[in-house]
Structures are given as C-alpha cells and as structure tokens.
Amino acid sequence: MIRIGIPRALLYYQYYPMWKTFFQELGAEVVLSSPTTQTMLSSGASRVVADTCLPVKVFCGHVLSLVKECDYIFIPAIRSVQRRVYNCAKFLGLPDMTKAVIPESPPILDIDIDVNKGKRVLYQAIYKLGRHFTWDPLKVRRASIAAWQAHLNYRELMSSHSLTPPQAIEKMLGSSEVEPKTHSSHSTSTQGTIAIIGHPYLLYDEHINHRLIHRLEQAGNKVLTPEMLTTEELESAIVKLVGRAYWTYEEEVVGAGGHYLESRIGGVIGIMAFGCGPDSLMMDVVRRQAARLNTTPFMSLTLEEHTAEAGVVTRLEAFLDMIYRRKRKQVEVCV
C-alpha cells in the first residue's frame, strides 16, 4: 500500500480530515507526523535561510521526520480558495521550496488549487493528483466527494460544538491521531473570558506557543478561538475593518479580532509568527482598531524559535493581572 506522508503543520489544521479521506478512499495509507518537538523545530530551521518564518521552519521539521516513513509527501500549493482572495507566497512556494531544501525527501505530491482559474482547472488538478493511485476517473470523483463531505462535517463539528481543530479531529478520526489535549476544566468560577486570534498552526501547536491555551484555562479563564465564530460574524468584521478580504486566512486574524474586540470580553491576545508577512499587516489593523475603540485590552505575542517559555509566561501573567484589576475596578464602581 502506498504510504502518503502528511506533515502536522500549516494547513493540516484546516484540511486534515479532507486529505485523509481522499487518500484513504483511493486506497493509500496516510502517515501523519507526530506533534512538534524541539528536535523537529531545530532540524527544520537548520535547512532554510534564517529569516524564513517560524511555521515554515516547523513544517520543514515535520517533513524531515517523515522522510523515511512514507513513499510520497503531500504538499499542496494553495493559491486561492475564494475568488480574488490569495494566499501567502510561502504556501505557493512550499512544494518547490521543500524539494530544494530537503533533497532527500520522498517524491512530493503537489496540487495547484486556484479557484480563480475556474472549476474545470480545479477538477483537472484533482484528477491529476488522483492519477498517482488510479486510472479510474470515477474513483477519483467518489474520493473527492467523500473528502469534501468530510471537510464539511469537520467545519460543522467545530462551529456547532465550539471545538478547536485538534478536538474536532480527535472526535472525527479517533483519539490516536491527536496530541494529548488537556480538556478545559470548565470550572464554574471563570476569572475572565479571553479570545485568542491567529492562524490555527500557531494557536494549536502547543510546542511553539508554549501551551498558551492550556495556561489560560488553568488560570481559570474561558478561551475563545476564531473557529467558534460563524462565517457571517467573521465577514462582517472584515468588511468593517478593511473593506474586503485580501488574504485567504484573513478571517482568523482580522475577522476574529474585529469581532472579539467589540464583544465585551476580558481581552484579546493576538498570536503571530516573527517574519510572517500577512500577519505583520493584519495584526497591525487589529491593534489599531483596539487602540481606537479603547474598550478591550489587546496584546500581541510574536513567536519565533528563540521565544522562551518564561517570556511568554511573564507577559501572559501581566496581561491577565491587568484584566483582573480592570474587572475588579468595574465591579467596585458598580457597587
């Protein structure tokens, strides 16, 4: 059986159930890399030039860990999944870049996704990918329909049950797939409600964000994430802030940020990676909005491979202290 390697990084969090279903329907075995470790991060970082962004370094680490484990590695080049909204250059160059920096990697299965070119081109691209496994176009068609259904189920599961991507993947595909996840204790006395915004590959990679969600929950906070908002809520916030989405994953930052800043919660934490092109702009839009509204505290955390745990913890504690103090003050004023 052909083994397809899928790195647990970048777009894994958005599309894994879809990809897994597609390849399994075509009779392949899917090998997923294990959760990020320091070794992976260092080995990935050693391959690319220094100012490559953190998520791509992590990605390369995952690919390296899969080199001996599979026959192909699946790295799509996703240019656009919405008309006239484009993706970051790094996603487009990912297959070619991986080939260049990891020459020992197994052959890379890539697929060009660009909805601006029309449905026919998209279907042809999918068929071309399927051809690695079968000649039968109908089989590819069945597999892609099943994959799309899996994707819809996954999205539905996240928005209706307020689940994070790792929790939803766990629920859909069984627990063996997912990193040990500490479930929120849901203590009755929540200290505050904190929203964290950013791309899933930063929010849910516990190694690179130093278990941020876990820390917030342990401190007795309710944590909100971008996946818990509906598409309409996200889109209306984007329209309000920048008019029209420019980036494919803009809703995770500008949409969620714009929405949560106006939803009377304790605070908003923006998480971005150092050297991330789109985020450096989008986070600034959110930061400016926070300063203009001046109602909800906002903190942005920039992650990179040198980010030390102690630094993150200190900033987090200071931010939480400020929110608690603010809350106490408001209560006193009311009394």
């Binding site: 250059a89 160059g93 070619d96 870049m97 450096s280």
Partner: peptide, 10 residues
C-alpha cells in the same frame, strides 16, 4: 522579511 524573495533565496 520579503516573502517571495525568501522562497527564492531558499
């Protein structure tokens, strides 16, 4: 931090 040129550089 130029995104396309980092790809090229790699």
């Amino acid at each position: 931090t130029c995104m396309p040129e980092i790809i090229a550089q790699n």
